[in-house]
Design a binder for these strands. Structure first.
Lengths: 128, 128
DNA sequence: GGTCGTAGGTGCACCATACACATAGACGAC
DNA sequence: GTCGTCTATGTGTATGGTGCACCTACGACC
């Protein structure tokens, strides 16, 4: 019953997908499948496609993004998403809370390192 | 409908309470009410007491901590928690995933800053 | 025809979280 | 004495994000 690293002991911040998508859309218009690959660069590996499309749909209904169908010659039609001004506001508003999370994590890690130094009898935990 | 900073736009990492409690218990035995105040130092302000006690209870049943009642002369009895070896393993195992989250957040922020520089027409978002 | 890659989507169950609320001992104030 | 307050530990419940499975449809290739 020892903990295994592949278990979901902890996860990314709650609702982290939304800022990721908004950030990517702030860099340029894109469609869902494209975003599905790009969010991996932001730490979200193994994203659930269903959840991603649902998230985009929700942000569309909330006015954070605008969507438009775009026919494709090679494959099914794609829905392209564009960031709205409100979505940009949201992106800026979420920066502060995210920064706070980063600060909290930094504090945690500093404190964890202190515990490690105080009890160096354990084999060092894997660190990046 | 503009986003307000006090809204829960994003939150701390999922399951973040567990590592926090284990880290605090790695620093020394404590009881729940004490931990309730100390987790604020790790970024968890406004912790739900119910959730904290439930978390402690769950970790007790999983063998990550051991609990013992301790009578108090000034106030109700308190339940003191002690970290077990298994709990210490868990603490070390969770360090890597947490570090990954921190890395992901750092990447996000760097990329967000790049977007900010590319579109400096907006008033700068509050940053720590 | 069958299969693969692209593209978007639904249904559902689990579980963490949030919020409200309950209990109980000790202690000082009125 | 009992009322409120602080300490201390819980329960009940609803919400919602997340993960997993599954489905549709188009184009291309063998």
């Amino acid at each position: 019953m020892s903990p295994r690293s592949e278990d979901s002991l902890v996860g990314l911040p709650r609702n982290y997908l939304r800022p990721c998508l908004l950030l990517l859309l702030a860099e340029g218009t894109a469609h869902g499948y494209e975003l599905l690959e790009q969010v991996a660069d932001l730490g979200m590996d193994r994203v659930d496609p269903g959840g991603l499309y649902r998230c985009l749909r929700a942000m569309d209904e909330e006015g954070l993004v605008r969507s438009a169908w775009e026919p494709s010659t090679s494959g099914p039609a794609r829905r392209t998403y564009t960031l709205t001004d409100e979505g940009r506001d949201w992106l800026h508003a979420v920066a502060a809370p995210l920064a706070e999370v980063a600060v909290a994590l930094a504090r945690y890690q500093r404190r964890y390192q202190r515990v490690l130094r105080r009890a160096p009898d354990v084999d060092l935990a894997p660190q990046l």
